[in-house]
Simulated scan of single mutants.
Amino acid sequence: MASRTNHPMERVTLESTRKTALTAGVFYLVTFASSIPAVFLLEPVLNHADYVVSAGNDTSVVWGCLLDLINAFACVGTAVALFPVVKRQNESVALGFVTARLFEAAVIAIGVVSLLAVVSLRQSGTAGADPGSLFSAGQALVAVRNATFLVGPGTIPAVNALLLGYLLFRSRLVPRVIPILGLIGAPLLLLSAILSMFGLNNQVSVLSAVATLPIFLWELSLGLYLTFKGFKPSPILSEAAAHRVGQAV
């Protein structure tokens, strides 16, 4: 008698979940590959108050904006890829994770638009325009971007970690130490972000770095594990296989 794992429909299910894990893992790694270089490429506009009225380095800033957009799309990709699997654990929580990722991507996009507006002002507004007005407009747009960074990448990953961490911890789709990192890091990141909103903490500080580290490790380890290992055997995967086999029969 053939073993259950030799059933063609179950093999198809295992292959599809492996592809799902690989897709989600690659999207997670893309968020790192795009967001980290963007920090350095955007340095001219973020750390130089007179960028909009100076010579500037528009090419660097535009590339940084492009990488931030890639990061935003990859954020959505992680949630869309994982949703069909994690919804079997709790569909409401899984839908909340997708929504949070969409919100994070939208906030990142707002920050990108504000910086592209600075570049546009610098390129077209310097001739005959009041330097003081340009300077104020440029500073305001950079302030918008900094606020989006605090609300988006600085806060929402904590919500993502709570939602997805819960789903992965309960389902055992990955080693439990991985979601535990996210569940520990989430309240720390939220605390750091709230203190920053009230002016009690700086976004670039020791507290912010310590609060961000567990979330950084959580997302990186999750991306690497899903890319190179895939999902662990889990009851929700067995249920999915049994359901598909039943439909075939």
Rank of each mutant, 00 (worst) to 15 (best):
68 D>P: 00
45 V>H: 03
206 V>D: 07
69 L>C: 08
187 P>L: 08
47 N>S: 09
214 P>Q: 14
212 T>G: 05
54 S>V: 01
104 E>M: 10
61 V>S: 02
124 S>C: 12
112 V>P: 01
187 P>N: 12
163 L>M: 07
60 S>L: 12
162 L>V: 07
54 S>T: 10
135 F>S: 14
43 E>I: 01
114 S>W: 05
35 S>W: 05
211 A>Y: 07
11 R>K: 15
26 V>A: 14
128 G>A: 13
95 L>I: 09
2 A>Y: 14
53 V>C: 01
104 E>D: 10
153 P>S: 09
26 V>G: 05
199 G>D: 10
196 S>M: 11
36 I>C: 01
170 R>N: 01
146 N>Q: 15
87 K>M: 11
212 T>P: 01
1 M>Y: 08
107 V>P: 00
56 G>A: 05
8 P>H: 10
97 F>R: 01
242 A>M: 02
128 G>S: 15
43 E>H: 13
236 I>M: 06
134 L>S: 09
63 W>P: 01
6 N>F: 10
209 A>H: 11
130 D>W: 13
222 L>R: 03
2 A>K: 15
70 I>L: 15
19 K>R: 15
68 D>A: 14
208 S>E: 12
203 Q>T: 08
203 Q>D: 13
243 H>Q: 10
80 V>K: 02
34 S>C: 12
1 M>Q: 03
34 S>I: 08
211 A>S: 10
151 V>S: 06
171 S>D: 04
154 G>H: 07
215 I>V: 11
151 V>M: 11
44 P>Y: 03
173 L>Y: 00
53 V>H: 03
48 H>I: 05
3 S>K: 09
156 I>Y: 00
216 F>G: 02
121 L>Y: 03
43 E>K: 12
165 G>Q: 06
34 S>Q: 00
71 N>A: 14
161 A>V: 03
10 E>D: 12
213 L>T: 11
153 P>N: 07
167 L>M: 06
65 C>P: 03
59 T>Y: 06
246 G>K: 13
223 G>P: 00
126 T>V: 10
201 N>I: 05
63 W>H: 07
190 L>F: 11
8 P>G: 09
132 G>W: 04
68 D>S: 14
209 A>E: 11
125 G>P: 02
213 L>K: 05
197 M>P: 02
109 A>K: 03
202 N>F: 11
45 V>L: 03
136 S>Y: 09
88 R>Y: 08
59 T>N: 15
194 I>Q: 13
239 E>W: 11
119 V>T: 07
130 D>V: 12
234 S>R: 04
87 K>A: 12
215 I>F: 03
204 V>M: 13
14 L>S: 05
192 S>M: 09
57 N>I: 07
237 L>S: 02
159 V>F: 06
201 N>G: 03
202 N>L: 13
38 A>G: 05
26 V>L: 14
184 I>Y: 04
51 Y>D: 00
208 S>T: 14
84 P>N: 15
213 L>A: 08
111 G>M: 01
190 L>Q: 04
177 V>I: 11
78 T>R: 10
179 P>C: 08
189 L>H: 02
131 P>C: 12
141 L>R: 01
172 R>H: 02
229 K>I: 03
188 L>S: 05
16 S>P: 00
